[in-house]
């Protein structure tokens, strides 16, 4: 149990650092940046304390906001994602979620992929909606969300595979 907490704290710090120092500088095509820091919320233990998840997601977003000078936007997106995480689990994994046997960092199955897809979509959509905040640019928002989403999903999967926990 102790090691899980440690791993999560470490993940928290490493992901924020990577996001702030590396992924925010992509600026692919001017404005498309991946946001793989939400892996923290995705990979948070399924049976972990939910309140802790909410608070840590809020802090995660807030710190990323600090780096990007976008107070509140990432925090809101992360918070909503953390809150909806249970529902996404239920949607993607169905019954097996009830038995808490879900393991995300394993080989890529359609369930896992759909979970990551929905999670990333929710986060990015809220993020860009708050960032642009205008009905006028709704198509731009959707396009940005889509491009950034693809980017983030690819990076998330790569990172999951790269840092497969050394359980074996």
């Amino acid at each position: 149990m102790n090691s899980i907490v440690l791993v999560n704290i470490l993940r928290f710090i490493v992901l924020i650092a990577a996001q702030a120092l590396l992924f925010n500088k992509f600026n692919f095509n001017g404005y498309i940046n991946p946001h793989p820091y939400i892996l923290f919320i995705i990979l948070y233990p399924v049976n972990g304390n939910k309140n802790v998840l909410l608070i840590s997601a809020f802090l995660l977003g807030l710190i990323v906001d600090m780096f990007q000078d976008t107070a509140g936007i990432h925090a809101t997106a992360c918070l909503v994602l953390a809150y909806l995480r249970d529902y996404i689990f239920k949607f993607s994994f169905g019954l097996s979620y009830e038995y808490q046997t879900v393991k995300l960092n394993d080989s890529l199955t359609p369930e896992r992929f759909s979970f990551i897809l929905i999670a990333v979509f929710i986060h990015h959509f809220i993020l860009f909606l708050l960032d642009i905040f205008s009905v006028e640019y709704i198509w731009g928002t959707i396009l940005r969300t889509l491009f950034s989403m693809i980017f983030t999903i690819i990076l998330c999967i790569i990172i999951i595979y790269l840092f497969k926990p050394s359980k074996r």
């Binding site: 309140n51 107070a71 936007i73 925090a75």
Partner: peptide, 22 residues
Amino acid sequence: NSYRMLFLLLLIISVSLAIQSH
């Protein structure tokens, strides 16, 4: 409903931050 309450509280904080910052 502490879980939901906590969520709402944090959501209000973050959204108000987002609105105030811009």
